[in-house]
Design a protein around this nucleic acid. Structure first.
Lengths: 190, 190
DNA sequence: ATGACCATGTAATCCGTTACATGATTCG
DNA sequence: CGAATCATGTAACGGATTACATGGTCAT
């Protein structure tokens, strides 16, 4: 159950379900995401379990806000989760499946088009990471001045940026290789 | 519905549900995975839709094998899927969430331990990719001799290897940075 | 004989997305 | 006035994992 622990972590300061979704949309979505239809029930069940405590507060617009805060028990549970091993979920990359099966078509033009589109999408992801980097207080660089929280955020963003950057680079190299292969195939045909 | 199209792609040669799961376990799991409880119903519903046709055949051990093959309609559907845009699912990396929230603990020893474990797991993934590379006919290198299918497989494996390789490298760099930071923190305490 | 592997299938459960229902405020 | 945003919640559905049920073969 990762989502509940991630919500626990995000509740370092009290927030509503609506706020938490906004945080996902604003940047946290580079490592996780969830919709309101999942967030509200999750928060409710966490409160029942004693990890959270909610209070209601009027809102300038719209209905009353339900503000959640971590309890001591919730904090203990978060720490337990953090002390456990790194969680490796099964990775699912549909686009790699598409690329591998494109081999059956035997049309390198299609493969080239596909790799170009993939490159676009990956570099869009890179831009998101860049925005997140700029959007956070001190995470642009990192020295001994930054707080522990900022430092860890920086580590995570760099992790993503490196991995996605490598993907973009590979798209470029692969495009070159595909073009060369197509050229050598056309020669053979003569 | 990616799974069904991936099964369609894997059925370039006829196979049973059991075989397909074995293929996931043997290597395809670096980009997708599924359990029998999902595979059998998926194959059945694809047959009803006319994408597959099954035949039964006795097995030396165990019950009769149900062998699925693609129909012409199934092949058309696969091509349609391949010609669509690269599918970008929401990525979910629980370990990045853990890393980011480790900042709240303010214990760099914990962070270091975590990064070491993460490095181990990522390099295990790299090894899987290497095994897959060696396990496939011609995908060790890639020249104009290799078939289109082998070539595309090689592209995919390289894609994964680059991305995961970058993660491992980042773990190493991050470990260095964490150690330096801890050292400078200890100096300040004096 | 006990356990591992072959082989198929169903059912329960959980995780996630999308749609529905409600209603106030704010901006164009 | 209509659309967007604020805000909470439920319901329906689909995707994925795990457990259950069944039973044969093979090696230790």
């Amino acid at each position: 159950m990762s989502l509940e622990h991630i919500l626990l972590g995000m509740l370092r300061t009290p927030a509503t379900g609506y706020d938490l979704r906004a945080e996902f949309l604003a940047g946290a979505r580079y490592f996780w995401s969830a919709e309101l239809g999942q967030i509200y029930p999750a928060l409710a069940s966490m409160e029942q379990r004693g990890w959270l405590k909610s209070s209601r507060q009027p809102s300038p617009k719209g209905p009353q806000r339900r503000i959640y805060r971590r309890t001591a028990q919730g904090t203990r549970e978060l720490r337990r989760w953090l002390a456990s091993e790194p969680i490796m979920g099964t990775e699912r990359f549909a686009y790699l499946a598409q690329l591998i099966f494109l081999g059956e078509l035997g049309d390198l033009d299609q493969t080239e088009r596909f790799l170009q589109q993939l490159r676009e999408k990956q570099s869009a992801l890179l831009e998101l990471l860049d925005q997140v980097r700029q959007g956070t207080s001190g995470a642009a660089q990192c020295d001994s001045q930054t707080t522990d929280a900022e430092f860890h955020e920086w580590l995570c963003i760099m992790f993503g940026a490196r991995a996605v950057g490598a993907r973009v680079q590979w798209c470029d190299e692969a495009l070159e290789i595909v073009r060369r292969r197509r050229a050598s195939q056309k020669e053979k045909q003569k």
